[in-house]
Design a binder for these strands. Structure first.
Lengths: 247, 247
DNA sequence: GCTTGTCTAATTATATGATAATTGTGGAAC
DNA sequence: GTTCCACAATTATCATATAATTAGACAAGC
């Protein structure tokens, strides 16, 4: 019964049977142990394997189906869907995938997207932010200057900063991308908590640009922040200097 | 038993009890009929309301929980999550949301994101596309020139074109954004199938740029395509000239 | 050969009725 | 007022049964 490690963004909660089945099957699918071509075990067999009743198995299956990982039909049974069908932006799927891919590649993909989203989000924030939005960004930044760089509070403050900018963009879909960022920050801090202190001033510049209602500057400073962070972390990852991952 | 209309991207399939409960509760939550503050009905009551067994209700709840709409805990019961927690990029959630928002606003949000993603995706495609990727894009474009502009085949070909470009960007997260585009195209065609013929040549220019391995041109042409489409459709939406939506 | 219909068995879909585990709440005790 | 505890409400899990669906095999007809 291989207990897979998972990306613990928050506190690792005590898991129930349902959550265990979901995670175990989810990671197996993402890792490619179960493919669209393989026959998927039938519910009864899964129940035996996990020592769970059919109800639990079925609920787990529905949960995975909602994430686009599998599909379940009468008589046909359960089928793994092709990877293009997976909801990769789902936080759980994202974390499973993080555990199953080479960190450098995962981080590369992630930052490519962040670079598409966040600079423009910062520009929108500079245009649309209300006073309360700017206060929230400023507060998060103030928090960042206070916390210990290696603490989880550092991740929280950093995340809050980036999320507040997305929120200030006044676009719900944009705000949603916060999940991506959360994972990105987690990896960054996991890899090197130095990045936190190194790039603190650059965060301040982004805040200043938004405060000054300067979309162009906001876009530029955010882009610079992301590019530099990416290089910094990617360098560490490639040098194998990252902290051991719990696997 | 109000049968909610739904965004029928593909064929409207005959639905089972589970799917009905999921959709009904999902739309109620998105529309704000059920809020985080309201007490959520308990499983037993939901069962009575829908004429379904507790198993079905529980499976539906798990499905909605996987999409971040609700959370269910022992003794506490089921709780609607705040909107920031919803997985808006989930295709179902996206379609429910489409049915619950003013089309102009929905379309605006959608295109703001598409404009962040697709121009850069086109640029990446110009850099990274393999011969087979370009063939796929070209094929989709050829298909677009053949089909009747008002047919669903037109939407399919259009979607295939945009998806192929995302795929050529060689970034799984990017590819995932295809869901957004699918909905966007659906709305465009629903609103005015004229847009299809009007912007066909611009699609060709994007293809040419990718073929020529010219990232800058790819970015520019895609940006132009999206901007013009947005203006075209938004104009129609605001003038109330859109085809009646089935509600 | 090819299609079209029909039967059968496998698998999920749904129902029912238990028991277990968790935890918010109110009240007792201090 | 605070702490602690028992109770009750609700989901979590289990076990078992029946219904609905349909892939696949096989037969019939053209």
């Amino acid at each position: 019964m291989t207990k897979q490690p998972r990306l613990a963004l928050g506190r690792v909660q005590k898991r129930n049977l349902f959550a265990h089945v979901v995670e175990d099957l989810g990671t197996r699918i993402i890792k490619g142990d179960l493919t669209p071509d393989d026959p998927f075990p039938i519910e009864a067999d899964l129940g035996r394997e996990f020592g769970a009743s059919r109800s639990v198995i079925r609920e787990a299956v529905k949960s995975l189906a909602a994430r686009g990982l599998i599909e379940s039909k009468t008589r046909t049974g359960i089928r793994v869907m092709p990877p293009t069908h997976w909801n990769l932006l789902d936080p759980e799927v994202l974390s499973w995938r993080y555990g199953a891919m080479p960190p450098v590649q995962f981080y590369g993909e992630l930052f490519e997207i962040r670079l598409m989203i966040e600079p423009q989000a910062a520009a929108l924030a500079a245009e649309r932010a209300q006073a309360s939005d700017i206060a929230e960004i400023a507060e998060a930044f103030a928090e960042m200057t206070k916390v210990s760089p290696s603490s989880t509070a550092a991740i929280d403050a950093d995340l809050r900063f980036h999320r507040a900018i997305l929120a200030a963009g006044k676009n719900a879909l944009l705000h949603q991308m916060g999940h991506l960022i959360a994972v990105g920050l987690y990896i960054s801090h996991q890899t090197s908590s130095d990045s936190f202190t190194v790039f603190l001033p650059q965060h301040g510049k982004v805040l200043d640009a938004i405060r000054a209602r300067d979309p162009q500057a906001a876009r530029r400073t955010m882009e610079k922040l992301l590019n530099e962070t990416r290089e910094f972390i990617t360098g560490h990852l490639k040098n194998g200097k990252r902290k051991a991952r719990n696997s």
